[in-house]
Structure formats: C-alpha cells, structure tokens
Design a binder for these strands. Structure first.
Length: 153
DNA sequence: GCCAACGTTGGC
DNA sequence: GCCAACGTTGGC
C-alpha cells in the first residue's frame, strides 16, 4: 500500500465537497501534468492512502484523509470541447490524460497546516510538499512521512 | 536541441 | 494582487 498527497483548491472542490458526493467518491479529473499522470497510471492502487490537501487558500494544509478507489482510467473531460480541461491533441483511441476515483474517509480532527509541516522539516526530509517551488498536484508520501504526519494530528 | 516567451501554480 | 518557480510551447 502506497501513500499520496493530493491538492485541491477548496473554493472549487474541498474535502467537504468530497464528503457530500454520491458514495463519497469523486473522479479526480483535470490533472494535466505528466508527472502527476504517471503516478496515477503507474503507481496508484485502490486502497492507497491519500492526504487531502487544500491549496491556494487562506490556510493551506492537510484537512482530511481519503483513499484511492479505482485504477487509472481516461479522463473524459479531455474529450469535451466545451470543458475547461479539453485537450484537442488527445484522441479517444489514445488518451493522453488519466484519472483515478478518490473516496472520502474522514476529516482530520484538526487541519495540519503547511506552516506546521514546515516546522517539522527535519522529520520530513525529502517530502516534496515542503520543498521550495513545488507545484505538483499529486505527490508520493513515504510511509515514514505518513506516520510522522499522522502523529501530528 | 536550445532557449525565450508565456501560462500556471500556489504561498504570502 | 504580487511574484517566484516551474512546465510547456514554438521559433530558430
């Protein structure tokens, strides 16, 4: 079992939204970054743990836990010409972009903010979230880092 | 293949 | 709103 951190902007889709979804599950569409896609395609498995991270907001941080609920499959929004994430260069017979389903597990008892994670940088060496300039929306989390982060809750 | 220009991300 | 960091695009 692997662990991940997945970012979302709470103004568009936050952990509260995931909880309200049918089956509390949502296709994680709109990923248009090859490295993030490759994580989904090559390494994610149903049952993997997810730290649900709120980005681009007043208090960025981890707000809840989720799990991967499917293997990777083609992101339908890439073929919808009216959709914001439409990709004219992607063909249905050879989809460029994939997604996975993500299922809600629970809110954290309290958010673990980015600022707090930075304070524990010495325990989280190699965790890309706290590296300067990181922009990836899907990050692997080492089991040891997962354990240390969970211990902060 | 290089690299400047551009667009996006995301913290602050 | 600002801006640093980064990925992508496209001219050459």
């Amino acid at each position: 079992m692997a662990y991940w951190l997945m970012k979302s902007e709470p103004d568009s889709f936050g952990i509260d939204d995931l909880k309200k979804r049918p089956k509390q599950t949502e296709p994680w569409d709109g990923v248009r970054n090859y490295q993030a896609r490759n994580f989904m395609r090559d390494r994610m498995k149903p049952g993997d743990g997810v730290l649900f991270y709120h980005s681009n907001c007043a208090a960025p941080g981890i707000y809840g836990l989720a799990e991967i609920a499917s293997n990777a499959y083609p992101d339908p929004t890439q073929f919808d010409s009216k959709h914001h994430h439409y990709d004219a260069g992607s063909k249905p017979e050879e989809p460029r972009w994939l997604l996975v389903d993500v299922r809600y597990q629970r809110h954290l008892k309290r958010p673990i903010l980015l600022s707090e994670l930075r304070e524990h940088a010495d325990e989280l060496v190699g965790f890309k979230l706290i590296a300067k300039g990181n922009r990836l929306s899907i990050l692997p989390v080492a089991p040891e880092h997962w354990r240390r982060i969970m211990a902060l809750e």
